[in-house]
């Protein structure tokens, strides 16, 4: 067992891990931060996406020891401390960018990073950037719309009854 320390959502945590302990296991099991999900085992679905030292990575494809000393942000660390949703989170609710919610943490982490890197992406750029995040519910339409809206660009309003 190896002792590691990392900052997660602004708080410092230490724990004992095996070599094989994945970052996602450390987050979910040791720290009980179960917002980060595991949806595949081939590093493709992106439900486990977190930020490590400012970069989006798949926490199921990184060992916890590799994040020793790192600054990690998970979906639990995105909203303001008083619970106010981030712009991206709020846009996902406003534009119905989630259904079952399982891929959502990964989508939020990826979308947040996209807009940091590219504050006014085109729709094409949004779709390309989501390549590593699979959603089975929404058909991506409203996810893309939510991200465009979160970037301050105009989108069509949600459906309304006549």
């Amino acid at each position: 067992m190896t002792k590691i320390t990392m900052t997660v959502n602004g708080k410092s945590y230490s724990g004992e891990v095996e070599g094989r302990t994945l970052l996602v296991n450390f987050l979910r099991e040791t720290l009980s931060l179960t917002g980060t999900h595991v949806g595949c085992d081939t590093s493709q679905c992106g439900a486990c996406t977190v930020h490590v030292n400012g970069q989006n990575v798949k926490s199921c494809t990184m060992f916890a020891i590799e994040a020793d000393g790192a600054d990690v942000t998970t979906v639990e660390g995105i909203a303001a401390p008083d619970g106010t949703l981030s712009t991206v989170q709020q846009a996902f609710q406003d534009y119905h960018g989630l259904q079952c919610g399982f891929c959502t943490p990964g989508m939020i982490m990826t979308a947040t990073k996209l807009l940091e890197n590219n504050p006014k992406p085109t729709e094409h750029e949004v779709r390309e950037y989501l390549e590593g995040n699979i959603c089975r519910c929404t058909g991506y339409h409203n996810i893309v719309k939510a991200i465009m809206a979160a970037s301050g660009q105009e989108v069509t309003p949600v459906a309304a009854a006549e």
């Binding site: 639990e76 959502t104 939020i108 309304a160």
Partner: peptide, 17 residues
Amino acid sequence: GASSKRREDVRFLTGVG
């Protein structure tokens, strides 16, 4: 007939589902 925002979303968006 209203497009009420989904109340379940907040827990999913903040990782506390």
